[in-house]
Design a binder for these strands. Structure first.
Length: 401
DNA sequence: TCTGGGGTCCTTAATCTA
DNA sequence: TCTGTAGATTAAGGACCC
């Protein structure tokens, strides 16, 4: 009997180059050839969201404080982001990607994974597929994308980063180890400043060096989970699964004040606005959260979060505001001026029933939050209309309001 | 230099429950 | 009924990503 052969998996990763800055350059010919920085405006608190390659030549990069970017290049064009426009362009790009494969997983506004498995028969070898992706995006939007193609997500992502901007890299399975070997360990996914510090203490700079370290030794330094993760990555082992339509896990909104705020009325007013935005997003996406969280940052970047489980999931700004304010007032926070305030919801469940007050809200029930049992009990007490809600909730068939 | 905003995932500790 | 314990849940914070 011939052993069953699984087809070669091909994952693509497409990444638009300096997305926000490139769109502004495209739309305003006067900016072409000039350093363009999108983010906060000089003189305000904030960082760089995107910088074109002309600006990067001055050492400006994303997440850099705007004051530092200005110091490095005062003659650059500084712009506030126009998110509505970027979203429109992003939609166009995703439509293009979906004409090539139905399995497209958005990572962010300007980045996506694509399952390209089995497309060779239709579109040719991986190199040809990559060329088509870039060509179509350029024809339709006038923007440059970098594309990486490999046997899994990790290699595809590192491939798109490999030749930027405007590059294409295809890595075949038998090339994976050589492709990774000379890369700095910082290229691996999820390896940030803290982990890098540990690696440099151990004298590990490249992926090849990491590969030579026994897993056991890594575990002692990083813990089991992280060690296994980076060890696997060093050998090019990663998931090849591309998941379209991932459900988001939280909705939040936060804001940083230009100057730290002490007045409770101001904080409450701002919180009301943030809660309203979160609630509006939740309603638009038919999501109701049963966990409300508050984020507070004080001077000196001292950040605290507080969260609270509520007995019924909500998408109502009044409930979100009430809970967030209670967390602020009774969350044992230091009485200092506030730099940033934010609010969010998560833990999706079926929406809050209109007859909230009909339900058992004893402290115990509130604490363990067994919604379904509560719904069933309410059904017993209040008849058929609510009975249907209870049953539907149980089988996940209740349409969110 | 002085650090946004919107997310995800992980770890740890405390608390609850069977 | 009390006690000890393991596992689940909740809460807070940190690291990381784009």
């Amino acid at each position: 009997m011939t052993p069953a052969r699984t087809p070669q998996r091909w994952v693509g990763h497409a990444d638009l180059d300096a997305f926000y800055a490139s769109i502004e350059e495209r739309d305003r010919p006067a900016y072409r050839g000039r350093p363009v920085v999108v983010g906060a405006l000089p003189g305000h608190r904030g960082v760089v969201a995107a910088a074109n390659y002309r600006a990067r030549a001055f050492g400006i990069h994303s997440a850099m404080p705007i004051a530092e970017a200005y110091r490095r290049c005062p003659e650059a064009v500084f712009l506030r982001p126009d998110m509505a426009k970027y979203v429109r362009v992003s939609r166009e790009i995703f439509r293009i990607l979906e004409t090539l494969t139905p399995v497209v997983e958005p990572v962010s506004i300007d980045e996506a994974y694509l399952d390209l498995t089995g497309l060779e028969k239709l579109l040719g070898p991986p190199e040809a597929i990559g060329r088509q992706i870039r060509q179509r995006i350029r024809e339709v939007t006038g923007l440059c994308a970098s594309v990486g193609i490999g046997p899994n997500r990790l290699i595809a992502k590192l491939g798109s980063e490999h030749r930027k901007p405007d590059g294409l890299t295809v890595v075949y399975p038998d090339q994976v180890l050589d492709f990774l070997a000379p890369m700095p360990v910082a290229s691996l996914r999820g390896l940030g400043r803290q982990t890098q510090r540990i690696f440099s203490r151990l004298g590990i700079r490249t992926v090849a060096q990491l590969r030579a370290v026994p897993l056991r030794d890594l575990e002692q330094q990083l813990g089991r989970k992280a060690a296994a993760n980076f060890h696997a990555q060093a050998f090019g082992i990663a998931s090849a699964e591309v998941v379209p339509n991932r459900l988001r896990k939280s909705i939040s909104k936060e804001t940083t004040f230009d100057e730290d705020v002490r007045e409770q009325t101001t904080l409450h007013d701002v919180l009301r606005g943030l809660a309203a935005t979160v609630a509006a997003t939740a309603r638009r996406e038919n999501l109701s959260g049963s966990l409300v969280s508050l984020k507070i940052r004080f001077a000196g970047f001292e950040t605290h979060t507080r969260q609270r489980k509520i007995p019924f999931p909500t998408q109502d700004e009044r409930v979100i505001l009430r809970e967030a304010w209670a967390l602020f007032r009774h969350g044992n926070l230091p009485p200092k001026p506030v730099r940033l305030i934010g609010v969010g919801i998560r833990d999706w469940q079926q929406p809050e029933p209109a007859q909230e007050d009909l339900f058992d809200q004893s402290p115990k029930r509130a604490r363990d939050g067994r919604l379904l049992e509560t719904l069933d009990r309410a059904a017993d007490r209040f008849g058929k209309g609510i009975l249907q809600i209870g049953c539907a909730a149980k089988t996940d068939k209740l349409k969110p309001r």
